[in-house]
Design a protein around this nucleic acid. Structure first.
Lengths: 166, 166
DNA sequence: TGCGATTATATCGCGCACAAATTATATTTG
DNA sequence: CAAATATAATTTGTGCGCGATATAATCGCA
């Protein structure tokens, strides 16, 4: 009978506890974010397939639509990604024809990433995506904004904690 | 210098909908989750390094501490992961000595994943992690639970939407 | 009984994501 | 000015994460 240890019968659904209580994985705060983040990318998938982007590529394009000339480091700072993640991703976007990459003549260390005409045009194709996503969340705009602010505040707190320990 | 194009001067006149506003990437709800999820793993990193696990491996161990004998498919269902993700991950956990994997004699298609003695013991080492994480969030227990519920509800809504379109 | 579906894992290829090491350019300092 | 240091991006190696496909075992049903 290797099958009967479901859980301590009466553990309340705690996110954490002073005693080493067993917390089911689906009650961990971190897991809710992990799973929700994956769920987002799954909702995006068919929409992004239609315009030939992956989800991280889409984030980079959104950043570029916001400001069309940025450095690798600047994009990394905004998205929280290392250059070792961005370099190959940007090369793929370049191969797809959506961006150009070139060394800044004023400082040859930095690479400037710019929208191509095709990258500009893609923006039109992506126009309706945010409304589709909002609809998929089942939230109204006010709740979505509230949640976005709460989650961003949490991210900031976590980043501060991570920096403090590092 | 080449740095003043905060947004496109004029969006092309489309015949239909009210022009969707440009949403900065750091105001997207999806991005707040994407970034927060990464921030969680960064906070976990030093704690998990100390016990030799990655974050996804930790989630699997938490699931096994909750119920020590599970199938690959069962774990995948709980964590929302495919067998193509779990199979190599579980092999690594096995190589580390934390779990055992064996075909179920009653149904040779099924692989049963069990905690090893070492995997059981690891639970003690991981005992204090949840409190560390809660502290890093800056939230009190009640707020953390509330947020966990909201986020889980959102995940469910997104999964429903994704399934509906597939 | 046997054979076509279904189910459970595993394999393969691609694209993140990061840490560590590398290369190339700038800046600081002696 | 030259050497030491700092900065920006790239390369390399490891581990997710998924879709598509493969393999093997079981089930359903005539």
């Amino acid at each position: 009978m290797p099958q009967d240890n479901a859980k301590p019968i009466s553990s309340p659904p705690l996110t954490d506890a002073p005693t080493p209580a067993l917390i089911p994985v689906d009650h961990l705060l971190c897991f809710s974010f992990y799973a929700a983040s994956h769920a987002f990318t799954r909702v995006y998938k068919p929409l992004l397939d239609a315009i030939g982007l992956t989800y991280p590529q889409y984030l980079v394009m959104v950043a570029l639509w916001e400001k069309e000339d940025q450095t690798v480091g600047g994009i990394g700072e905004k998205l929280g990604l290392e250059s070792s993640t961005l370099t190959p991703l940007l090369k793929r976007l370049e191969a797809l024809g959506f961006v150009t990459r070139s060394r800044d003549p004023a400082d040859e260390r930095v690479v400037r990433v710019r929208l191509s005409a095709q990258g500009e045009a893609l923006r039109e194709q992506a126009r309706t995506i945010p409304e589709c996503i909002l609809k998929a969340t089942g939230l109204d705009l006010a709740d979505a904004e509230r949640l976005q602010k709460d989650v961003t505040a949490l991210r900031v707190a976590l980043e501060k904690a991570a920096a403090g320990k590092g």
